[in-house]
């Protein structure tokens, strides 16, 4: 008996990988995938799903670069899809052959981040801008100048702790091209942010709902759908529509190179892209859907969710060259030195 027990214990660790055929490990933005849909997927397919979350594209990239992340599906934004693909970190899944691809809006096909549609199927898109608490601030929100050269908002502003997002917005405001390698132009961005710094309470990316909703700060650098969700939960917040434009993002499903459960990952992508499930995901995540959804069941319309239907220009973030990225970093470390 004892021998049997011992033998079983010895075998157990080897048995585990066999069971792993039925699993799918997802690395996605925090709270970005409807838990109901994950439960439904497991019910339909028997595949067990584990979800870990990241809170910046850089986190996702670093994790994949470090190697053997163990994830089968990751959801980075467009410029990071490009970087990951160029760096050979992604599995070529022939995304154009998936059922999900047929559901995709034509404007997201054959784009610069995945010209052959080999690697990625978009999951959600939206914008980065800033939101104000209307109990604390009743001035205009039609320009980035309100945030970057504040008068009324001084001392009540919080930005994100991600240089890419903040610098991109400052570039939009100043009319400096994204990923500029021109030092003089980037110096302007730096000067703008340094002059703004005394008016900024914090550079932080956590706990934004509370900070803005409770009025701890009157303005926060933020995303469209998050503002929408906070507003729907009763907070008096408004997503700004700066005339200089908003920074666009599109998150896509990609499969890391060498992932163990590629077929399960593909099955999940297809599952998430059916009209019924995409609609449910849209209603849960409150960010725009790049795939076809059932408009009659969609909770958010231009009338009740102006956040998701911006009328100002949307400029998508680019994959910067190392030289341009170094300038972004220089702006940031000089700012926070």
């Amino acid at each position: 008996m004892k021998k049997l027990l011992l033998a079983t214990t010895l075998i157990l660790p080897f048995a585990a990988p066999a069971a792993a055929e039925g699993t799918l490990n997802i690395y996605a933005w925090a709270d970005s995938i409807s838990p109901d849909l994950i439960a439904k997927f497991t019910e339909e397919t028997g595949i067990e799903v584990n979800v870990d979350s990241f809170s910046s594209n850089e986190d996702a990239l670093t994790k994949l670069q470090a190697g053997s992340s163990g994830y089968d599906l990751v959801t980075p934004s467009q410029h990071f899809v490009k970087i990951m693909a160029d760096e050979g970190l992604l599995e070529d899944i022939d995304a154009y052959e998936l059922a999900a691809y047929a559901q995709l809006d034509a404007r997201w096909k054959g784009q610069w981040w995945d010209p052959e549609n080999d690697y990625s199927i978009p999951l959600a898109y939206g914008t980065a801008g800033f939101s104000v608490n209307r109990d604390k601030y009743d001035g205009p929100v039609d320009s980035w100048s309100v945030l970057f050269e504040p008068t009324d908002l001084a001392g009540s502003i919080a930005l994100l702790s991600y240089p890419d997002e903040v610098v991109s917005a400052a570039q939009l405001y100043l009319g400096v091209e994204f990923c500029s390698e021109d030092k003089a132009e980037m110096k302007k961005v730096y000067d703008l942010l340094v002059a703004q710094k005394p008016s900024v309470v914090a550079y932080t990316s956590d706990n934004i709902e509370n900070r803005l909703g409770s009025g701890e700060v009157a303005a926060h650098f933020w995303w469209d759908g998050n503002t929408l969700r906070l507003r729907n939960s009763g907070a008096n917040v408004e997503y700004a529509a700066p005339k200089e434009g908003l920074v666009g993002w599109l998150d896509s499903f990609v499969v890391p190179a060498g992932a163990a459960n590629v077929d399960n990952a593909k099955a999940f992508i297809d599952f998430m892209s059916t009209v019924e499930n995409a609609t449910e995901q849209y209603n849960y995540y409150a960010h725009s859907a790049p795939v076809a959804i059932d408009e009659s069941k969609a909770l958010y319309t231009p009338e009740n969710a102006p956040e998701l239907f911006p009328t100002v220009p949307v400029v998508f973030a680019q994959a910067c060259s190392p030289a341009a990225q170094d300038l972004v970093t220089k702006v940031w470390t000089d700012l926070l030195q």
Binding site: S56, E58, L61, P163, Q325, D326, V328, T329, W332, T333
Partner: peptide
Amino acid sequence: QTQFGGARN
């Protein structure tokens, strides 16, 4: 943290 993240250095 910044170097391994945003700065990619």
